[in-house]
Amino acid sequence: MTTAEWPKETLARLLAAERPLLAAHLKPDGDAIGSTLGLAEFLRSCGKTPTVLLPDGIPELYRLRAAEFQTAAPSDWAAFDLAVLLDTAIAARAGFGPEGGVPEALRAKLLVIDHHPDNPGFGAWNCLQTVAATAEVVLQVCESSGTAIPRAAADWLLLGLVTDTGGFRFDNTAADTFRSAARLLDAGASLNRVVNQIFFNKPYRQQLFEAELLSHHVRWAENGRMAWAVVTPELLQKYDFDMRNAEGVIDMLRAIAGAEVVALISRRDPGFRVSMRSKNPAVPVVELAHKYHGGGHAMAAGMTVAAAGFEEVEAILERESANLFAGDPR
């Protein structure tokens, strides 16, 4: 949908459904959870009966308030007259089940709502807008109704906006991002609740985990311009740390002076997950992610690499680092 009427067109499709099914990508981050639960709260306020499907549950980091959702896939996809997939640019990562992908029974009634610029539009209908967060797209859709946004919906959407902008610090933050945040605050969202949950609620065991990760598991390339950390299963077990709560961990690496591109490597069956961030606009990371069938944004992207072990993944990053910086030599 590219016309100026896209919020109302999307809203009309949502409100035409009595029993919509809402889902996001596997291993959901704050924007995936916030945009999905925020839309669900809004639809309930409109008299609809949405079902929220989150196979991986809600990580501790994002448990902002009570939420209605299920982790088990429904036994009958036909029970839903619309499937809504949020914040998902790659169909294979769709969270309709633990294995990913879009069930054949849902393809003809799939509405994709997303903000990733590399989303190819794989839904029957696609609401794709390049803004800071999918929560911002959902906000505009809800606002087009002309009715008040419930406080619970505003809280969840603010969670999505705050997390995907890194607390309004990342390059995707624009003037309109702040305007969206202001409207959510006007709707009753609690910035104090969101900020305390995301940034000031870190378990002590996680702080110990992060200290050891920085001390013993960071590697370097390109004379310090690139850094990555290896999260081994042993390290996770030692500190009883759940990688679903790791959204802020990569920012520790990003904060290292001189490191322009950083990555976090972790085990994700059947391969290895590589999350990447760049703080140099001349060195985007999304093309590297695309090379390995991943995706994301220019400055924040991820990919899953098939490899025999961590050493092979590190060798790939070291080899690719030369290509990353080829256009911006020092």
Rank of each mutant, 00 (worst) to 15 (best):
His25Pro: 02
Ala133Asn: 07
Asp328Trp: 06
Ser266Phe: 08
Phe272Val: 00
Val285Leu: 02
Thr51Pro: 08
Lys202Leu: 13
Val231Phe: 00
Ala4Ile: 09
Arg169Ile: 12
Glu260Met: 04
Ile58Tyr: 09
Ala181Tyr: 04
Asn126Ile: 06
Asp87Val: 05
Glu99Pro: 10
Arg151Asp: 14
Ile265Gln: 02
Val313Thr: 05
Thr130Gly: 10
Ala229Trp: 00
Arg277Thr: 00
Glu314Tyr: 01
Ala307Arg: 06
Glu143Phe: 11
Thr173Gln: 07
His290Asn: 07
Gly100Thr: 12
Ala17Thr: 09
Asp81Gln: 07
Leu159Glu: 03
Leu106Tyr: 06
Ile58Arg: 09
Glu60Leu: 12
Arg330Lys: 12
Ser266Asn: 08
Val230Ala: 07
Pro281Glu: 05
Ala307Ser: 11
Ala246Gln: 05
Ala263Arg: 00
Arg254Leu: 13
Arg107Gln: 14
Gly248Asp: 10
Gly327Ser: 12
His293Ile: 07
Ser190Val: 02
Leu128Ser: 07
Arg268Cys: 08
Gly294Thr: 02
Pro233Thr: 09
Ala227Tyr: 11
Thr10Cys: 05
Val218Tyr: 03
Ala78Gln: 15
Ala255Ser: 15
Asp114Tyr: 03
Val137Gln: 07
Glu260Ala: 00
Arg267Ile: 11
Ala326Ile: 11
Met276Gln: 01
Leu159Gly: 04
Tyr204Phe: 11
Asn223Asp: 14
Arg193Ile: 02
Val249Pro: 01
Cys127Lys: 02
Arg107Ile: 08
Ile113Thr: 01
Leu317Phe: 04
Arg205Met: 14
Met226Thr: 04
Ala246Met: 07
Ala308Val: 14
Ala246Ser: 10
Leu213Cys: 09
Gly146Phe: 02
Val195Arg: 04
Arg169Lys: 14
Glu9Cys: 10
Ala23Ser: 13
Arg268Trp: 10
Phe168Trp: 04
Asp328Ala: 09
Asp240Leu: 13
Arg183Glu: 07
Val102Ser: 10
Phe96Trp: 08
Ala66Gln: 14
Val286Tyr: 05
Ala255Thr: 08
Ser321Ile: 10
Thr304Val: 15
Arg244Asn: 12
Pro233Met: 10
Arg93Thr: 00
Glu318Val: 09
Glu311Phe: 15
His25Phe: 05
Thr130Tyr: 12
Glu222Arg: 06
Leu111Trp: 11
Thr165Cys: 09
Arg151Leu: 15
Val194Asp: 11
Glu5Met: 14
Leu128Arg: 05
Val131Ile: 15
Trp77Thr: 03
Ile113Cys: 03
Asp155Met: 01
Gly121His: 07
Phe96Arg: 01
Ala67Gly: 14
Thr147Gln: 15
Phe200His: 15
Ala78Val: 08
Ala315Gln: 13
Ala66Met: 15
Asn192Gln: 14
Val285Tyr: 00
Ala23Asn: 05
Gly295Asn: 06
Asn126Leu: 09
Val84Arg: 00
Ala40Glu: 02
Ala154Asp: 01
Gly95Leu: 08
Gln70Ala: 12
Lys202His: 15
